[in-house]
């Protein structure tokens, strides 16, 4: 059913915090592990122990190096930083991957906005992957069907799992708590509040896909002083010798000891 549903009243998605992601790949591997035995076909691997190993993954971690500039716009390579960047399907509101699908295998769920592939109908034409600007869909080479993040639809509602585990595998496993799951249509949800307060943003808004998943920006960092306002208030240490010419450190020591005893 490749017509997009009317805008869902519930939009489940992820919020990913680039300020804390350490690029450990835990979410990506755990995702693969949960999903290879879960929803639809296995996430196969080719040439697994050979010279060109590859496989289908629903979540991948990229890292970027960003070079800041000073007020004049001059690049400051010595202050370059690495930003780790996890990426999985963003469950777009205007998901082109859904509308291009010729078979109806791709669809967006009306009840929660999750974008899924019905693997029994998918012909593996690859068009949906082409239409996704984010590279969120990967063909499984063994089964010839398109795989993508299911938002762990087989976990989040799964009555065979304890209630506290009904969250995506990647969210549960992330050791740095950089991934958050919730309803982004509800402005009072934790994730929405987080997005609002931290300036959460869309990836490639110019593509017009209206992604549901949001990213939180890394906080400003410099190699000198950091973000915290506290630093601005911290005065330079003044040497005791300068402070008190007559007694110096020994005088200070005496006074301190007097105060203790």
């Amino acid at each position: 059913m490749t017509m997009l549903p009317p805008e869902p009243t519930k939009k489940l998605g992820l919020v990913i915090d680039l300020d804390i992601c350490v690029g450990c790949h835990a979410c990506a591997v755990n995702c693969k592990e949960w999903n290879t035995g879960g929803y639809g076909n296995a996430l196969s691997d080719q040439d697994a122990y050979g010279s060109e190993p590859s496989g289908a993954w629903l979540n991948r971690i990229h890292s970027f190096e960003a070079v800041p500039m000073d007020a004049q716009g001059t690049p400051q390579p010595s202050d370059a930083r690495i930003v780790h960047f996890p990426k999985s399907c963003l469950h777009c509101d205007d998901a082109p991957c859904v509308t291009v699908c010729p078979t109806g295998a791709s669809y967006k769920r009306a009840e929660d906005g999750i974008v899924l592939v019905n693997e029994d109908h998918c012909i593996g034409c690859g068009l949906c992957a082409w239409s996704c600007a984010y590279g969120a869909r990967e063909m499984d080479r063994a089964s010839g069907v398109m795989k993508k993040c299911t938002l762990c639809v087989d976990r989040i509602y799964n009555e065979n799992l304890p209630v506290e585990d009904r969250e995506p595998a990647c969210v549960k496993s992330c050791p740095a708590n950089a991934r958050h799951f919730g309803d982004l249509a509800d402005p009072s949800s934790d994730v929405s509040v987080m997005v609002a307060s931290r300036g959460g943003f869309d990836l490639m808004p110019e593509q017009g896909n209206k992604p549901v998943n949001k990213y939180l920006p890394p906080r400003t960092k410099t190699s000198r002083c950091a973000s915290q306002t506290r630093d601005d208030e911290v005065p330079d240490l003044v040497s005791l010798a300068q402070n008190n010419q007559s007694t110096g450190i020994l005088g200070w020591l005496d006074r301190t000891l007097d105060a203790i005893s």
Binding site: C21, G23, C24, S63, H84, P218, Q228
Partner: peptide
Amino acid sequence: KEREAKIIAVNPVRTGYNAIADEW
């Protein structure tokens, strides 16, 4: 991070934990 405590990383390389530190 949740408490906005400050992290200073002393490391020749700025990846991983060091990448998310507030000061390098």
